[in-house]
Simulated assay, not measured.
Amino acid sequence: MKLRKLCAIALVATIGAATVGSAASAAENSLGSEGTVTVSGGIIDPEDPGSIIDPENPEGPGIDPETPEVIPNPDIESKGIIAVSNLKFGSVEVGTTFVNAKPIILIGENDGEDEDSEETDETRGMRADSETRGNIVSFGDVTGSYTGYTITGELTSQFTNDTTTLNGASITYTNPLLATSGTGTIAAAVPASVVLSTEEGAQTFVSAEEGEGSGLWTLEFGQSATSESGTPGTDANSVQLAIPASVASAMTVGTYTATVTWTMGATA
């Protein structure tokens, strides 16, 4: 009797072990499926506020391309200069040798909504609660194959009015702040001070090596008083026009115009 009971128990144990083994084998019988996606180069829209990164708040809203003195580049596609800011040095007297460019005044959230407002293009955004930014150059690379680039600036035409040229005048850029909204990197530091003159040609501000510089970027010269990056309170004194004393003493009355040309080129 005991022998029969032991045999029955052994038989049940054997069947149980076989069942577990079969279940384990079935669970290990798997097959994977493949997923594919094709990535193509992007397009940068200079009219999109998100394309001009706010260097003091790169993860927030961008700089509206309709901001006074911000000039979007209509010819950009997937790589190049997105926008630059005009330099407004204001009015000076004969004999003045140094003057700083005014900061950018960002457009407020309610700007342009009041149809009865007498606000003009020149005064748009110039409200007590508006934020300021230093002068900028914005650029980007969304090609998907990052070969690197340089960002250069050049004083391509000297300050001139109808009768007089400010020979020897130069523009000095200081307090740079470079920022991106993405995960791209640029290892090389931006020079702390760059001088542009008609005599010296193009000067390099940014150098992105191969594999660097992806995404959208803005280089700002001088930061607002509320900035948590860079050097706060320098947005109104970080782009300076210098005029030789001998030229300044002989300036004629009128408005002088110069051209600073920004270029994205190949790596140096």
Rank of each mutant, 00 (worst) to 15 (best):
G112Q: 04
G148S: 02
E109H: 03
N86T: 08
T263Q: 13
E109M: 03
G230V: 02
I76A: 04
V253I: 14
E119L: 08
T252H: 09
P58S: 13
A169F: 01
G32R: 13
N73D: 10
P74N: 08
S197E: 02
V253A: 15
T257C: 04
G80C: 07
A83T: 08
I43Q: 14
T123L: 09
P191E: 10
G80I: 09
Q240T: 14
E34Y: 14
A248D: 12
E66S: 14
G90T: 05
Q158F: 10
A189Q: 08
G184P: 05
A248H: 08
Y146A: 00
T183Q: 10
S22R: 12
A169D: 01
G125V: 00
T156N: 06
E131D: 12
A192P: 07
E93C: 04
T234Q: 07
D141A: 01
I186Q: 05
T19P: 00
I71Q: 05
Q240Y: 04
K2L: 11
I9R: 12
T164A: 11
S224Y: 10
S91T: 14
C7A: 12
I151T: 05
G95N: 04
L166K: 02
I63P: 07
D235P: 12
L106V: 05
N110C: 08
E200A: 10
T252Y: 05
L31M: 15
G125Y: 01
Q223R: 02
S229T: 09
E131T: 05
G213M: 01
A10M: 13
A225E: 14
G134L: 01
A236E: 13
A268G: 13
